[in-house]
Design a protein around this nucleic acid. Structure first.
Lengths: 201, 201, 201, 201
DNA sequence: AATGAATGAGATTTCATTCAT
DNA sequence: CATGAATGAAATCTCATTCAT
């Protein structure tokens, strides 16, 4: 079944990554075996190693795709005319994901990644790069808003960006532990917080 | 079968837990081997299994001690006369730890725990219990303050507690990735945030 | 199903065998993968399996061709009028090869074959047949010379043949290990040895 | 069963090496699996890896012990008063091994080593070192004899050493292929050869 | 005939845990 | 109580070979 085109190969790649996300989300990186991914993806070990050189490569691919998607979300949000709306849209985009089952899995994998990044230099580098990228993007959005006098010039853009990211990271964690965590009340606090920083001065 | 006293046993236990924290912080739960802990603790495998029934038991002991300590911190802070000071003291207590090397290791282990809690029901249960306990404590502090009219009654105590926890969880993560993260600017944002919620109405 | 002619098929076969010799010489039979041969030969796995039923078949083909060539060399040498000249020519023929790069590869493969012959009955049989054939040829040359009174009748033809073969096998090994082994001194010893046996009585 | 003494550990080590020699001799390095060695040695995989870091380490240990033994043999032989007797004793020592079953296995492994040395730099280095050591030892024996006027000064000691080694290497190979190779006739040729070089001038 | 993606048996190695001393 | 050698299940990855196209 040779001479397949890129569409075919991309489909297989996605098939493997999807299976891997499911397995990693349920078992963690270390407990999820290649065999698990084999079963989940309905492929064979050999087939998987045709697309990825190692288990770590699969993890890396997952992170990389995740980061690409997040960057896209932020760049999309940035098109809004003022910072309040940019931030509102970001909030909606990231919170929106909380309903989707597939995204739930991805979030679980993200938490695995935070742990893995600690001891795996290669994964660490990539995860770090991703978060830094996100922080820089947010930071710039804030700085731009300050330049346009939309928000107080006293706020440190970088620190505020960190704080926003923290609010979402913490939510991700807690949502993970609490199956019936109610988004609404959290959202209301978040809005109060956002308003206190991002409403027109 | 020489009966040794409790002091001796407790010292050995602590020796093992200290070694384990170091190993887990550096290698993660799965990559850190019992042998690593053996080397680090200068004991033998057999000795370790005399004090803990399994690797998981060691992890469990670490979490449990961690939670006890955090509970102590909060109960201590609660003695302050008003909520602004309670929150301020909590902030100082948790941030104070950021300078200590030993605490750095514990924080790293915490992140490992978040990941492990996802797939290990036993650890999951304990970690969940710990965060819930913390949330309940904070939540009650907030509710009490509302009852004393110190802060707005519109805020959902539980959600605000979650938000505060998130701010610290996110900081822990980012501090982990960014060796030279500056606490000061983050602290300033945190203060602004806290003030906007907790200053006398 | 395009019927191609024998010339085409023979060319492909040679292409595969050449590639295989290179790979086997560099990586050994077990470490050299079909994929290596695919890359080296610039063909595809499927193509290779069109010409050879298995990796072992390729090895077998290499041995067989090698043996054919050696037999040709001996038969050629045997045309010389007396045993001294026969032996001299054999020596030149086999030593002549030491300069050629391609032959260096073949010699490396031969050493692999000695090892493989030990545990692989099929290869073992062929290798054995080849050496036996060579020994018989030399043995007959010696016996004929004895019959013609060219050399002492006391020498056991078979044992002497073995000894001659050993001298070359050992040289092949040592040349393999010693990149700058000097042929000349060895050759002088070899000549002294040959003269002591093969000079006219 | 801890705190064992060196005798115990050496016995286990020997047990593993013996099993490995048997397996390697029968199946070759690549076909012999660790599991084979496990079965043969009646130990467990873990036990084996307690004594050797890898399959390659086992191979290395086998070569090293072999070389030590050969060196001992030569040094022992060198004590003879004149070169003829030295050489005679060497011949007897090495040929003597041909009767012993255990030595037969070792010889088979040696042939495997010649092949493995080609593609495995680590093994290559050790094998080379061993043969070089042997050649140097023989070479010095010859040179000493020349200094004492026992043999012709025209012979190149190094080349003659090579030739002697070759005679034994070739014999090892042929004995391997020919189960009923007769040593006597070969020995007679060898003696003629040795006499022609080593008898008093 | 050629292609090359897929297969899946099997190899090496690791490591939590046990238990004789 | 301590020791550390031994156990053996299980994990990752390789590679000869097949076969749909």
């Amino acid at each position: 079944m040779p001479k397949v085109d890129d569409t075919y190969r991309n489909a297989r790649r996605a098939q493997i990554l999807d299976a891997a996300i499911t397995c990693f989300a349920h078992e963690g990186f270390h407990r999820a075996t290649i065999r698990d991914i084999v079963v989940q993806s309905k492929l064979s070990p050999g087939a998987i190693y045709n697309y990825f050189g190692s288990k770590e490569d699969i993890i890396e691919a997952i992170v990389t795709e995740r980061h690409k998607k997040e960057k896209r979300l932020v760049l999309e949000a940035r098109k809004e005319p003022d910072v309040a709306r940019v931030v509102g849209r970001l909030r909606d985009a990231f919170l929106g994901e909380y309903r989707e089952k597939k995204e739930r899995l991805r979030r679980r994998v993200s938490i695995q990644l935070w742990a893995e990044a600690q001891r795996n230099p290669r994964i660490g580098k990539i995860v770090r790069r991703g978060v830094t990228q996100m922080r820089k993007l947010l930071s710039r959005i804030i700085a731009d808003a300050q330049r346009r006098d939309e928000i107080s010039p006293d706020l440190d853009p970088d620190a505020l960006a960190r704080f926003m990211i923290a609010a979402f990271q913490g939510l991700a964690l807690q949502a993970e532990w609490d199956n019936n965590l109610l988004l609404e009340p959290y959202l209301r606090i978040l809005n109060t917080f956002l308003k206190s920083f991002f409403s027109p001065v």
